[in-house]
């Protein structure tokens, strides 16, 4: 009897108006809209700021490889090339490495080693990019200019295609070194994502495969990889996005010159690095400042394209 009364009382209070719910709903809706507004205003302000440059140089802005602040002729070609080239190169190097780390951690590593290596990967992801930049400049660049680049240049001398890819004076800085630093920076992201999703594979799947006599590699290839494919692609795209927008570390090691050359050892620049370097000396209202804002807008568009591609790659999974 008493219990029933208590139940009644509690259900009665539940039906009463509770102000917390609509307030929470409104707040969370506002947060969602805030993100849209923020993104929209960012893109808009970059675009509006870039209009004078787009108008002055037209579509040629995208392809022109001239960046001449004295004659006020600006083009985005070198920076777009550098941005895409360093990011793609770093992905070519980072994805197999990250896969190896994740595979080792989930399948091969003895239990006592899993934690230290796992924590080391996560710590690497937390290192600020300026630290990678300084380490790259003071440690990697001298190594590259004294040992790695002269060796590679001599090794491939006379081999078609490769002799053009690895040519030029061994400055140590350049597209290749920038891609190496980016690789070190994105590997932890991709490896950590891959490890986490590899561990979501239900043990019963893997055990059944092992029961059928599969080797570790066959289990990886036929069970784990297909099961986690979409999440792995998501992790890779996360790393790619970071590589595209990385600023400080790249600025230190890319050599910063406005030329495109076939050689991977030649200096170049990226959108993020040229904006960081030129911004302080760009007077308000100048064509240079407008060109830098236009570059920012282009970087936004490139990131958007990458995101869109990763979304389409993820789609089949969403239907299931």
């Amino acid at each position: 009897m008493q219990q029933a009364a208590a139940l009644n009382a509690s259900s009665g209070s539940r039906s009463k108006f509770r102000p917390g719910d609509p307030i929470f709903a409104a707040l969370s809706r506002a947060s969602g809209i805030f993100v849209l507004l923020l993104l929209g205003s960012l893109i808009l302000s970059l675009f509006v700021g870039g209009i004078p440059a787009f108008r002055h140089f037209g579509l040629g802005f995208l392809f022109s490889t001239t960046w001449d602040p004295v004659k006020e002729i600006f083009g985005a070609g070198v920076s777009i090339y550098g941005t895409v080239m360093t990011a793609v190169l770093s992905m070519i190097l980072a994805v197999p490495l990250a896969f190896g780390i994740a595979f080792y951690l989930t399948e091969l590593a003895p239990a006592w080693l899993k934690r230290p290596v796992g924590i080391a990967v996560e710590l690497l992801a937390a290192v600020p990019s300026i630290i990678y930049g300084m380490w790259g400049f003071f440690v990697i660049v001298p190594l590259m200019s004294q040992y790695v680049e002269p060796t590679l240049i001599d090794l491939f001398d006379g081999v078609p295609v490769l002799e053009d890819l690895f040519a030029g004076p061994p400055f140590g800085t350049g597209i290749f070194t920038a891609a190496l630093i980016l690789t070190v920076m994105v590997v932890p992201f991709i490896a950590a994502t891959m490890r986490d999703v590899f561990e979501t594979v239900p043990p019963v799947f893997k055990e059944s495969a092992y029961g059928l006599g599969c080797t570790t590699w066959e289990v990886m290839r036929s069970i784990v990889a297909p099961y986690t494919r979409t999440s792995v692609i998501g992790g890779i795209m996360l790393g790619f996005g970071r590589a595209l927008g990385e600023t400080m570390a790249v600025t230190f090691v890319i050599g910063n010159s406005a030329h495109i050359s076939a050689s991977l050892f030649s200096s170049g620049n990226t959108i993020a690095s040229i904006v960081a370097l030129e911004f302080p000396e760009s007077p308000a209202g100048s064509l240079k400042l407008s060109s830098l804002l236009a570059l920012g807008f282009i970087l936004f568009v490139i990131s958007f394209i990458v995101l869109a591609i990763s979304r389409t790659l993820l789609r089949p999974k969403l239907k299931v």
Binding site: T66, W67, D68, P69, V70, K71, F137, F171, T173, T251, F252, G255, N256, S257, A258, H259, S267, N269, L277, E278, E281
Partner: peptide
């Protein structure tokens, strides 16, 4: 060919950030 400014279009060489660079 090049001219004078706080940043110019360098015909060759490597760019480094700051005096220390």
């Amino acid at each position: 060919k090049v001219g004078a400014s706080t940043s110019v279009s360098w015909p060759n060489g490597a760019g480094a950030k700051g005096s220390d660079g």
